[in-house]
Design a protein around this nucleic acid. Structure first.
Length: 597
RNA sequence: GCCGACGUAGCUCAACGGUUGAGCAUCCGCCUUGUAAGCGGAGGGUUGUGGGUUCGAUUCCCACCGUCGGCUCCA
């Protein structure tokens, strides 16, 4: 399911098919609910949707019915006929469609199309197909005969605000998908099943990695021993890399007085997403939503010289944010999480080198975890911003040059930066072709000002340092969830919580199995022996389901030869080999960060 | 936060206006096994929580909590 680039997609036949299918769906819905109001219905990445204002909530059965009716309509082979209208004609045609009237007003007054995008000149165009007519800029297929009915499927219903505005009415959105052929639809549905199979919320349960507890608070993750082992491995690797990368570490508290958050501005801007204050000896304390103010306090414990810059301070800092209940999603969106945070404090002259260094560092880190495809996003100065324009300019240039130096493809989000500074975000593509934002590298012209951070320059005067926040993996929880889905739980050997499982065939082999286990443990492999009463086949099945990379079967023959019969979770059987040889193979896999071999 | 759906044993799911069932897992036996489930037995749920309707609710209604699909949001 690799995505086309947006411009190509917009011009494609597939786009037309989906856009037209959305119209056919709207036609079917209006037949069923003649009093229904229609909003907008664009193509999206893997299909289309259409928003409706209907007299009642749609059910699963409605969807089945609507889909069946759509297929009939498609078979009737309606032409899509384009027409341009005068404002009066358009208003008359859509007199009982308030959402369309609003769109017409916008097209005329704001020069935008029905999706709110700017257009060259306002044109009120419609497409007729059968009895259905919709305000629409197109493009569409010539006729519904271009849409194979068996390549169309409705997927689900969800609520969606009119114009995406939470102050406006909630509409019902029907999501559907459409393809050029039934075969492509089947492939897409298979892909959706694969997505579901890899869902980290399922896998963290099946693999006994983490849990959540309703009784103890939503959005708060509990790391079980196996998940904790993996996290430890990730953290150890992360720390070692940071030492090599010239970072120092900090540890800071989890709570701080209101003063800190007033000073940082968090209470002004983000209070609604902070956990409520707790009263301690008559003072308000808050759980930290970010680590930066703490690092700044450390910075300010000394008069800093330009000679000690750049400072690079990293912390796996656990923060708490009160995310709205409806947005929590497994490990991907939680209320308590650990950022792989760092702050770089440097002089203006150093900024370019530092940015490039971070970017390279990030790519190296992400590659180590098996991600190979990256895309960069540069977000620049918004209308409302703090900090001198010259600094913004310099920072943006530094970011741009770093991206160029690494040869990354990137998109610019003009005016998309935070009010306090420009940033680069890096997205990775996972094994299913989905992209996830991980790394963020953000300038901050706000906090150094608010906390009056300074350093003494060569000239003996005080200067304001640059400060860059960066998180490479983002949050450990979320990164973990992404890793789980990327590998479908079959982690590379170096990360796998259990690298090898020894499977004695009969009880008389258990003692030998323990000896082997001990040898492997001495070689720093994570290993266990399945001494249960089950048969070998059941033990293998169990290890397979737990996605253990190496299964070492030991029976009479192995005991005789002091060997292990190595089975990989891929199903491949390497046969018997001396224990030392297996250790070598496993160590090789660990060192290469690869899968079992 | 908003719209909709859902919440039954550790897990996956079934059933029902009238004293909840299965598979897997667990425990106990028997079997001692050669590359994805050997066989038998036992234990385990005041059906998310709190109200209401009813002779009677797990089932119907309301509220709350949580989960799921989205929307808004994501410093």
């Amino acid at each position: 399911m690799n995505a086309m680039n947006p411009a190509d997609y917009h011009e494609s036949d597939l786009y037309r098919i989906r856009h037209s299918t959305a119209h056919v769906m709207a036609a079917a819905v209006l037949e069923k609910f003649p009093e229904g109001k229609v909003a907008i219905g664009p193509p999206i990445e893997h299909g289309f949707y259409y928003d409706f204002d209907l007299p009642r909530s749609l059910t699963e059965e409605d969807l089945v019915e609507i889909e069946a009716r759509m297929k009939e309509l498609l078979k009737e082979k309606h032409e899509f006929v384009y027409e341009e209208l005068s404002p009066e004609q358009a208003q008359a045609l859509f007199a009982d469609q308030p959402y369309k009237l609003e769109l017409i007003r916008d097209i005329l007054e704001r020069g935008t199309d029905e999706y709110g995008e700017k257009t060259a000149e306002p044109v009120l165009s419609i497409y007729r197909s059968g009895a259905f007519v919709d305000l629409c800029r197109g493009p569409h297929v010539e006729s519904t005969k271009e849409i194979p009915p068996k390549a169309v499927k409705l997927l689900n219903v969800a609520g969606a605000y009119w114009r995406g505005d939470s102050d406006r009415p909630m509409l019902q959105r029907i999501y559907g998908t459409a393809w050029e052929s039934p075969k492509e639809l089947r492939q897409y549905l298979t892909w959706l099943e694969e997505v579901k199979k890899r869902d980290h919320r399922r896998l963290i349960k099946d693999l006994d990695l983490l849990s959540f507890h309703e009784e103890a608070g939503p959005g708060l993750a509990y790391w079980h021993p196996k998940g904790a082992m993996m996290r430890k491995i990730i953290e150890d690797f992360w720390r070692d890399k940071h030492i090599e990368g010239g970072y120092d570490f900090a540890y800071t508290p989890h709570i701080g007085k209101a003063w800190l958050w007033e000073k940082s501005g968090h209470l002004d801007f983000y209070q609604e997403s902070m956990y409520a204050a707790m009263d301690v000896d008559g003072q308000d304390y808050y759980l930290k939503p970010m680590n930066c103010p703490f690092h700044i306090l450390i910075y300010k414990t000394a008069l800093r010289s330009y000679r000690e810059l750049p400072l690079r301070w990293a912390e796996l800092g656990t923060v708490y944010r009160y995310e709205k209940s409806g947005v929590l999603h497994g490990l991907m969106r939680v209320r308590g999480f650990t950022q792989d945070d760092a702050h770089i404090i440097c002089t203006p002259e150093q900024i370019e080198d530092e940015v490039l260094r971070v970017l390279r560092f990030s790519l190296e880190m992400l590659r180590a975890f098996g991600f190979e495809e990256f895309a960069a996003y540069l977000s620049t100065r918004p209308e409302k911003a703090v900090g001198e324009p010259a600094r913004w300019e310099q920072a943006q240039e530094a970011l741009r040059r770093a991206i160029d130096a690494e040869g990354l493809e990137y998109a610019v989000d003009e005016g998309g930066g935070a009010f306090y500074g420009p940033k680069i975000d890096l997205k990775i593509r996972d094994a299913l072709g989905r992209s996830w934002q991980l790394t963020t590298i953000q300038f901050d012209f706000n906090l150094p000002e608010r906390f009056d951070m300074t350093y003494v320059g060569e000239d003996g005067a005080e200067h304001r340092p640059y400060m860059v926040h960066r998180a490479l993996l983002g949050s450990l929880e979320r990164f973990f969830g992404i890793l789980v889905e990327h590998y479908a739980g079959a982690f590379p050997v170096w990360i796998a919580p259990e690298q090898a499982r020894i499977i004695p065939i009969a009880d008389r082999h258990i003692e030998f199995a323990r000896q082997v286990e001990d040898q492997l443990r001495q070689a720093h492999l994570r290993v266990s022996t399945d001494a249960s009463a089950s048969r070998m086949n059941a033990k293998i099945r169990d290890a397979q389901l737990q996605k253990v990379p190496y299964m070492l079967v030991v029976g009479d023959r192995e005991m005789e030869a002091a060997s292990v019969a190595v089975r990989l979770r891929s199903g491949k059987n390497l046969g018997a080999m001396p224990v030392a040889e297996f250790i070598e193979i496993a160590e090789q896999a660990v060192a290469s960060h690869g899968l079992e071999a």
